[in-house]
Amino acid sequence: MSLTELVFLVLAVVAAGSALLSMTSGQLVHSALWLVVTLGAVAGCFVLMTAEFVAWVQVLVYVGSVVVLVIFALMLTRQTSATTAEVTGNRWIAAALGVVAAIGLGATMVAGFRGEDIEGRRIGTAGSIGQALFTDWVLPFEILSGVLLAALIGAIVISRSGSDR
């Protein structure tokens, strides 16, 4: 086992462990902070797979904005920082769905990329990702931006409908 594989393994364990802690932690704020550790460890995994661009964007967007948004929403809706997470009956259904999705995605990855070697190849630079995004994947990219636009308009409609009434 090479050093890179060892570091990757450690980061993967950290990511999975902190994800578990984020789900089982009693306080919502702690869950959000454990999520930061998970996302950071996943970014580290991306770096080891030479996908540096994805890694830094992951930190910039997810740690820097999405987690802050989560914490902000938490602060606005609950009065104290010591609120505990409510357990609803949907918990086990959500867990089952999560496991199914993880197995499905994992199986797809293994089936599609087993035996691929990234050693010595720079597949994750900004240039190569830009090339791929605007040649092979331009249609999914455009559809995604359409979905985001729809979400944006939906958010505006929902937030305005209260004040008009």
Binding site: V59, L60, V63, S65, V68
Partner: peptide, 11 residues
């Protein structure tokens, strides 16, 4: 890299 690091600092 620098922008990502800066955004973590505010956390």
């Amino acid at each position: 890299f620098v922008l990502a690091a800066m955004s973590v600092g505010v956390l």
